[in-house]
Structures are given as C-alpha cells and as structure tokens.
Amino acid sequence: MQHMGPTLGIALLVGFMIYRRTKRTIGLQKIVPSRLIFRIILFGVLGCMFLYLGVLHPINLVADGIGLICGLVLGHYAIKHTQFERQSDGMYYRTHLWVNIAVLALLVGRIAYRLLVMSSQGPVPGDPSANPMQLYGKDPWTIGIFFVLVSYYIRFFVFLLSKGK
C-alpha cells in the first residue's frame, strides 16, 4: 500500500502517453525532423539503460533480443504499408494503423497485468524487491515488450527521417 502513490503516478503518465500516441496514430502526420531525432535519442537512451540492466539478469537478455527482433519485424511491416503525401507545407505520412494498435495493445496489456499482479501481491516488509520500479526490471515479459517498442519506434522514426529529406 505504501507504493500506491508512485504506482498510480506511473500509471497516469503511461496512460497519458498512450492517449497521445493513439491520437497521433490516426490521420496524416507531418514529418518534423527535430521531433523524430528527439524520439530516436530518447528511445535509444532508454533502450541502452534497460539493456544494461539486462546484463545483470541473463534471462532478460533473451527477452531483450526477442523483443528487438519482433520490433524490427513490426517496423519493417509498418514501413512497407506507410503512405506518404507531399503537401505545400511539407511531407506527411499515414502510419499502418493495425501495427500501431498491436504495439499499443501489447504495452497496455502488459502494464495492466503487471499493475494487477503488483497490487494483489502487496509488498513484503523489509524486502528490497518490493519497490515497483525494481519489479519492472526483473520481469522478462515486460522488458521484452518494452524492447518491441524501442526497436519498432527507432526503426520507424529513422525511416521517416530518411524519407523526409
């Protein structure tokens, strides 16, 4: 119960990010190179941090690799089905809706499952692994799904950056 505040804060932040991502998924989107570069760097740094944590837990390395491969395959499929339009004020694109929905559903489903499991178990007094942030790092499924997102978005954003030039 003592970790309810941070867990709720993380859930609200993730919910807001998912809302924004879903809103951007539908319709034409302008290619803005500065945003794409920022997102590539952000996902790259987060991916490197979790990859480093994966070295500490060898089973997570397997999940990292599987997640990276699945994300690259999804990214390749999305790239093949992305539509582009050149308008007077720049280049626009429309992403493949079903791939984005699948990636978001994986993320939302896994986070909801982890929050449900964490809330039903409750922390064990004196247990250092009772910290919710540490629990995310020890779960290979969550880490694997995170790497699906990392590799998908980095691959897709690099492609958009090259296409926008």
Rank of each mutant, 00 (worst) to 15 (best):
Q87S: 06
P125R: 14
I66Y: 02
V124P: 04
P132E: 06
D127R: 12
L68Y: 10
V117S: 01
W98C: 08
R86Y: 08
A105T: 09
G109D: 12
Y113N: 09
Y77C: 05
P140A: 07
I111V: 12
A105W: 07
G67Q: 06
A102H: 10
P128R: 10
M118W: 05
R86S: 15
G71H: 14
L115D: 00
G75K: 06
G67R: 00
F84T: 03
N100G: 13
L97T: 15
I69W: 07
V73Y: 03
R86Q: 11
R110P: 00
M118P: 03
R110Q: 14
D139G: 11
A78T: 09
Y92E: 01
P128C: 04
G109R: 12
Y92D: 00
K138A: 10
G67S: 05
F84D: 09
M133I: 15
P132M: 10
G126M: 05
Y93W: 06
F84A: 04
W141F: 13
R94E: 08
Y136M: 13
H96L: 07
R86D: 13
A78M: 12
P128K: 03
G109H: 11
Y136R: 06
A112G: 03
A105K: 11
N100W: 14
D139V: 04
S129K: 11
G90M: 03
G126C: 08
V108C: 09
H76M: 15
M118C: 02
L74H: 05
P128M: 12
V108R: 02
A112P: 03
V124W: 06
T82W: 00
L74A: 14
L106K: 08
A105S: 04
E85I: 01
H76P: 00
Q87N: 10
R114C: 06
G71A: 08
F84Y: 14
L74S: 09
L72W: 14
I69Y: 13
I101G: 01
R114P: 00
S120N: 10
V117N: 06
Y77A: 15
L135C: 10
L115A: 09
N131Q: 09
D139M: 14
A102W: 05
V108S: 03
I69G: 12
I143F: 11
P140R: 14
P140M: 08
L107W: 05
Y136V: 15
L106N: 05
M91A: 09
I143P: 00
F84K: 02
G90F: 08
H96P: 02
N100P: 11
G109M: 07
K138F: 01
